[in-house]
């Protein structure tokens, strides 16, 4: 469980990135953080593992004040997956790359190897164990970086823009992987602009603008709120757009439909009725 209490932060003490952010993320939740560029999303998740410390306010991770824990200690609980995999890959094989993080966190050689194998298998990277991460494609490197965090089995997984550069199938694989982790009790937090990805897989959305939380709640209601959409410069999910279009033709149809099945039913109704 992660709690932020009135957290504010400014880079170099001048460039304000967070203004009094409070939120609570319970264990086994799936939460998406959305917002404009520069809204403070990445700054927010960097507070979860202590990379940034609040200038005012407090952060609690699993009931402990994050102030008293080092980044390395917090990283056992909160795994952060970065936007740019190239910022962390530096060894000459995928396998070593994954074992490196595990050994930093104090796992023995044998356990590290075993976890490494499992994780690679889970991500469909079995064939890559001995390959150099630098020779892989962008999307593959991204998955290696993800694997290096997954292997440590954090209880909270925070991902920064995980869907960028992934094709539709990889995106689905990623989603099902995150769902599996979530089923096993892992909290999943994702920062993304991919609104389809959010509506499909994340029940809760936190919308940010200008370092503040402008909306926090059920994804369907946050993302159908025109004010929020406007402030966070989002475009409505295609399904919601379809619902709105239908509503204009047939006023009895609700504007707030967000599931494919709902839309299908409505269309079937409308067509059947005529």
């Amino acid at each position: 469980m992660i709690i932020l209490e009135d957290v504010s932060f400014a880079y170099d003490g001048i460039y304000t990135a967070l203004r009094g952010v409070s939120l609570q993320i319970d264990s086994s939740e799936r939460v998406a953080i959305m917002g404009t560029n520069g809204a403070g999303k990445t700054t927010l998740i960097k507070h979860m593992n202590g990379l940034l410390r609040p200038m005012s306010g407090r952060v609690f991770v699993d009931g402990k004040n994050a102030r008293d824990l080092s980044v390395a200690e917090l990283s056992r609980t909160v795994g952060l997956v970065w936007q740019n995999p190239d910022h962390q890959l530096f060894l000459d094989s995928v396998e070593k790359e994954i074992v490196f993080g595990l050994q930093n966190l104090g796992y023995c050689e044998e356990e590290s190897q075993q976890r490494c194998k499992q994780t690679l298998a889970g991500l469909g990277l079995e064939g890559f164990a001995k390959r150099s991460p630098f020779a892989l494609s962008g999307g593959e490197r991204k998955r290696v970086a993800l694997a290096s965090v997954l292997a440590t089995e954090p209880t909270v997984l925070a991902l920064d823009e995980p869907t960028i550069g992934q094709d539709a199938r990889q995106k689905e694989n990623l989603a099902s992987l995150l769902m599996d982790m979530n089923d096993q009790g892992c909290t999943v937090v994702v920062v993304t602009h991919d609104i389809e990805f959010v509506t499909e897989y994340f029940p809760r959305t936190i919308a940010m603008a200008n370092g503040k939380i402008v909306a926090d709640g059920k994804t369907s209601s946050v993302l159908s709120n025109i004010d929020v959409i406007e402030q966070c410069s989002l475009t409505l999910p295609q399904l919601t757009q379809a619902a709105r279009a239908l509503h204009q033709i047939v006023p009895t149809v609700s504007e707030r439909l967000s599931l494919l099945t709902e839309i299908e039913d409505v269309i079937a109704d409308v067509l059947g009725g005529q």
Binding site: K46, N49, L51, S70, V71, A72, S75, R76, G79, L80, W82, N84, H87, Q88, F100, G101, N104, L105, S148, V149
Partner: peptide
């Protein structure tokens, strides 16, 4: 800036 981003990334993997 890049160096700082990399340091963050490695710290998050337990490099002290």
């Amino acid at each position: 800036q890049e160096a700082y981003a990399i340091m963050d990334a490695q710290k998050a993997r337990g490099v002290e």
